[in-house]
């Protein structure tokens, strides 16, 4: 029996999902639904846009207006929807490869415009759908099927990237700290501007196995112990912080939103309100 939340927000006839046993994505998908439920949003006026990859399959299971697009382009599609219907709540569910590699340009430009989208990156540090290649968030030195001798690339700190590019809300959650992550997504949706939530997932099948992280339970325990709040992190030395992942809200400074600014142009040149 699915829970009331699942019943209300997911297309239960489409379950079970395609994710591997132990994958963190199911938890994160539920977190998004819970955040929408907590905010009491009209489902007709919620659109989920996703790209391509394991994360992006979430859209199909979620019972809103859902658009499963091309690899890397979810934020660009979402920009068009938001421009056409500014009253719509538009949430982008994407992955680390989708958002930060092939879609990196759209990510930074979405941030720069401060258009009212909420981006939730199901960040599992790997390309799961294609079998475990290293991604822009695979830590240096770790392995993937295309980094057999260890990854020599540096990894993106995505919330820092988003903030530098102009996002007005940035945060990081994970799979273990569920109430916190729900709250972060909620706050992201509430921010009238570009919100970026790096949601750390777990991929026991590829990333975990390739890097000897243990099974799903071990990986969840890792998040329990090593994902720490900013207040806690501030008290630790650089060495103590080495294997830690800071979670929580990083930045929340609203500023003028893009579709509002565009409406001022329409008003100025005498165009009618709304298309």
């Amino acid at each position: 029996m699915p829970s009331k939340l699942i019943e209300k927000h997911l297309r239960t006839d489409r379950l079970p999902h395609i994710w591997c046993p132990g994958c963190g994505h199911g938890i994160l998908m539920r977190d998004v639904c819970q955040a929408i439920d907590n905010l009491n949003l009209d489902k007709d006026m919620v659109t989920i846009v996703s790209g391509i990859g394991c994360s992006s399959r979430a859209a199909g299971y979620m019972n809103y207006n859902t658009l499963h697009t091309t690899h890397g382009r979810a934020i660009a599609f979402a920009t068009g929807i938001k421009m056409a219907k500014p009253e719509m709540t538009v949430i982008v569910i994407t992955g680390d490869g989708d958002a930060a590699a092939i879609g990196g340009n759209h990510l930074i430009h979405g941030c720069r415009r401060n258009i009212d989208l909420t981006i939730v990156v199901f960040n599992n540090n790997t390309y799961g759908m294609t079998g475990g290649q290293y991604s822009p968030t695979t830590p240096t030195g770790e392995k993937g099927t295309t980094a057999p001798y260890g990854n020599i690339d540096g990894a993106f700190d995505l919330p820092r990237l988003a903030k530098a590019a102009g996002a007005t809300y940035t945060a990081r959650g994970d799979c273990y700290h569920v109430p916190l992550t729900i709250k972060l997504i909620e706050n992201g949706i509430k921010n009238h501007g570009f919100s970026f939530i790096d949601a750390t997932s777990i991929c026991p099948t590829y990333y975990g196995r390739k890097n000897k992280k243990g099974g799903p339970i071990d990986m969840m325990h890792w998040q329990e112990k090593n994902c720490i709040s900013k207040t806690k992190a501030d008290k630790l030395s650089k060495e103590e912080l080495e294997d830690k992942l800071v979670i929580g809200e990083f930045y929340n400074e609203p500023k003028e939103e893009y579709t509002d600014l565009y409406q001022t142009i329409i008003d100025k040149v005498g165009g009618k309100r709304n298309v």
Binding site: V49, T70, F77, A78, T79, G80, A84
Partner: peptide
């Protein structure tokens, strides 16, 4: 992509 989003 944006044009397709608006069309949707």
């Amino acid at each position: 992509a944006a044009a397709l989003g608006a069309s949707v």
